[in-house]
Design a protein around this nucleic acid. Structure first.
Lengths: 141, 141
DNA sequence: TGTAACTGTATCAAATATAGTTACAAATAT
DNA sequence: ATATTTGTAACTATATTTGATACAGTTACA
């Protein structure tokens, strides 16, 4: 397994939290739905917490809940919260600087990369967690 | 090395070819600029050839050249030619189908994924290889 | 205050993808 | 014929992601 599915898992996790309202949800419970290990969930929750999207409580009867209403959580903020890779990677090894193309291509690709990321962010920003919840409801209705 | 840099390398390769005009360019020559192994370049050229963007000649004095003018090669067609991964991956393991969220989330994410890919394609389609060549020229001017 | 139930995180193993390398058959200009 | 080049298979090395175990720290509650 190498393809980064953290965004997908994060959306799943947040959808679970949204449906629980103000109740604390345990990582074990979420893990059972995502079909993975609780630690994997806690790692994602840790990133979502750092981004201010959720808040967690340790200790007995602890767990995690949303830090704001689903309508205020855009998919863009989720995407940024979990450190996914870029849409495309730049050269692994720096190109030959003795070649005019090798010398100039990196910055061009870097700028392009930023623009694409921005475009993806804007597209994702058109949707919120609330949108996803509606879609999930419709999907299995 | 795991991040997929094939798109970046493909743009680099095609830029080299564009600058050579109608001359055949050898994979060794391109590899020297990209700073990698010729076989890596030939693998990319193989994909670009399958997409009809370049044409190659085997044998002595063989090599590769563009199959059409740089202005007619959009970055979208390059992106599609090299099999990059998606912007984000779906769940590695299928979610728990006994959970309403697990049952509905996959198709929602799949549709979202398609929409994002489409958006990326449109953005990349705004640029052509000719644009990149201009940018590279300006960058090291 | 003790106990049970959580999170947070370190650490390791397993699986997988990418890139790099070597090798060689097939093709082709001279 | 020969030298040169592509096309591709096979293998290695490396990085990343996920999954799993373990345990310290925190907290509610009897």
């Amino acid at each position: 397994m190498a393809a980064n599915s953290q965004f997908s898992m994060a959306v799943h996790v947040l959808t679970m939290l949204a449906r629980a309202g103000d109740d604390n949800v345990k990582s074990d419970y979420i893990a059972a739905s995502v079909n993975t290990n609780p630690v994997v969930i806690r790692r994602i929750l840790s990133q979502l917490n750092a981004a201010g999207l959720v808040s967690s409580q340790t200790g007995a009867f602890g767990g995690t809940r949303l830090a704001k209403p689903p309508a205020e959580i855009s998919l863009c903020s989720i995407y940024k919260a979990v450190s996914c890779g870029e849409v495309f990677a730049l050269h692994a090894k720096s190109p030959n600087q003795d070649c005019p193309v090798g010398r100039g291509i990196e910055s061009v690709l870097c700028n392009l990369q930023k623009e694409i990321e921005k475009s993806v962010g804007e597209k994702l920003g058109q949707y919120s967690l609330a949108t996803v919840i509606d879609m999930v409801s419709v999907a299995h209705a």
